[in-house]
């Protein structure tokens, strides 16, 4: 889900850059020096995870995992995604420099939203509740990203309306897939490493 260079109109590019700058500033303020290695290593892990090809019918898709990233990193999702996308832009030329702001916001804003909406509740003791919410978290993060992407295109020009609508629809299978993967992944993490989700061990 990267918008290429040269597509978006100047006002959309400026708005994206400004919102991302604010988000990154907030993320950096919340991330003290002690936490930098953790955020960086997890950023690298998410980068690697997003390269995994997940089979879907006759083709395969890449996961975005911004919902999970938001749960694990909170506001640090902004600098993490900015660095991830900057690396993709420089190493693989996906995305670009002028679209860095808009592309980062499209992925990071839903991540932070998920952190606030689901951060506490996915660690619920009740497994059914936790799994359902984790699915909703993974699903809605991609849904919000797709909607933001569509909004960027439509604000650029009315003629993008059809393309934007198809883009959102095309992401529907990915949304279900992300929901499933995030639900399974969170169940795993709660068993193996609840600290990752900010849960401290009870005595023993």
């Amino acid at each position: 889900m990267h918008i290429s260079e040269g597509v978006l109109s100047p006002p959309v590019l400026v708005a994206g850059a400004a919102l991302t700058a604010a988000g990154v500033a907030m993320g950096l303020r919340k991330m003290d020096n002690e936490k930098i290695p953790r955020v960086a290593v997890l950023t690298a892990a998410f980068f690697v995870a997003s390269l995994i090809r997940v089979p879907l019918g006759p083709s395969s898709v890449h996961l975005i995992l911004n919902g999970l990233l938001g749960l694990v990193l909170g506001w640090a999702a902004f600098p993490a995604i900015l660095v991830g996308l900057a690396l993709q832009a420089i190493l693989f030329q996906f995305g670009g420099l002028t679209t860095l702001g808009a592309n980062t916001f499209i992925m990071a804003a839903p991540a932070v939203l998920c952190y606030y909406l689901f951060g506490r509740s996915v660690t619920s003791k009740h497994p059914g509740v936790a799994t359902t919410l984790a699915f909703v978290c993974g699903f809605s993060a991609v849904l919000f990203s797709a909607l933001l992407l569509a909004a960027c295109l439509v604000f650029t020009g009315e003629s993008f309306l059809h393309a934007a609508r198809i883009l959102v629809l095309a992401h529907l299978p990915v949304m279900f897939l992300e929901g499933l993967v995030v639900a399974f992944c969170l169940a795993f993490l709660m068993k193996v490493k609840p600290e990752l989700l900010g849960v401290t061990h009870a005595a023993g």
Binding site: L42, A45, V48, A49, I52, V54, L63, L65, L68, V72, L180, V181, V182, A183, F184, C185, F188, L189, V192, K193, L196
Partner: peptide
């Protein structure tokens, strides 16, 4: 694959 990603994060 979800467990694989989880293990990577751990």
């Amino acid at each position: 694959l979800a467990y694989l990603i989880g293990m990577l994060l751990v």
